[in-house]
């Protein structure tokens, strides 16, 4: 049984993960809740971690695997109201996850569990030549700009600048973040990094980002992008395979 203070914040986590995955197996143990899975095409990986400290209340015996249909969970979470607390309660007897919104009253959905097991995927140990921290909404806006021009985007680090660029048949777009840019928090690089990515996936991954959030990007040349940010007490990590010439 786990209680989160803001159902509405957690809704954004579920919304974002559901953009990429159809189902997920949550592992709940005394450290908190984690989950990791690749999308069916193996282009993207999502890793979710909600430390025990993020919960207002957390009770567990042993370790539980909770298979969830994300489309159904998302629909339920969309019913969260701004002052609702969220209680997630595993009913092993009925094989359901109770999703409870608590405010002046108590509204309870019982979500049927899926018979899926947790993936054994570990994050690959990739050494990245460049790490960029920047304001999440600035990154998201640059991706939305690029989306007007093409269906892919190139993310580059060169000369202590982070560049988002794309070329369409007729029109081009680029956004540069250098040390003078208030959106750029830090940039560490050993040489250049340049990789191309599908924009639809990237836009799905940044869906939950709002003003004030900070994203951390790990980049290389023709390497997967690693993207990290925190949302509603959850740490989200994404990997996205590049497009290669």
């Amino acid at each position: 049984r786990a209680t989160l203070e803001s159902a509405k914040e957690f809704k954004k986590v579920v919304d974002t993960v559901a953009q990429i995955l159809d189902e997920i197996c949550l592992i709940a143990n005394e450290d908190g809740i984690t989950a990791r899975a690749m999308d069916p095409s193996h282009v993207a990986l999502v890793s979710l971690e909600i430390p025990r400290l993020s919960f207002e209340d957390y009770e567990i015996e042993g370790e539980k695997e909770i298979g969830i249909d994300l489309e159904a969970f998302k629909k339920i979470m969309n019913r969260a109201k701004s002052k609702d607390k969220l209680i997630l309660e595993l009913d092993e007897e009925k094989n359901k996850l109770n999703v409870i919104f608590e405010n002046s009253g108590r509204r309870k959905f019982s979500l049927a569990l899926l018979d899926i097991s947790a993936s054994e995927i570990k994050m690959p140990e990739i050494e990245y030549p460049a790490v960029v921290m920047l304001k999440g909404d600035a990154f998201k806006e640059a991706l939305k700009d690029a989306d007007l021009i093409s269906d892919y985007v190139i993310l580059k680090v060169e000369d202590n600048k982070f560049i988002v660029e794309t070329k369409g048949e007729l029109n081009d777009f680029s956004a540069e973040f250098d040390e003078d840019s208030s959106a750029l928090i830090s940039i560490e690089s050993q040489g250049h990094a340049k990789s191309a990515f599908n924009l639809e996936y990237l836009l799905d991954m940044v869906k939950g980002i709002k003003a004030g959030d900070i994203v951390k990007l790990y980049l290389g040349t023709d390497m997967p992008l690693k993207l990290e940010y925190s949302l509603g007490g959850a740490n989200l990590t994404f990997l996205l395979a590049p497009r290669i010439e």
Partner: peptide, 13 residues
């Protein structure tokens, strides 16, 4: 704009 590859090859290394 290139060809989309998968993550699989990065897990093998």
């Amino acid at each position: 704009d290139g060809k989309q590859i998968t993550l699989d090859s990065f897990f093998k290394t």
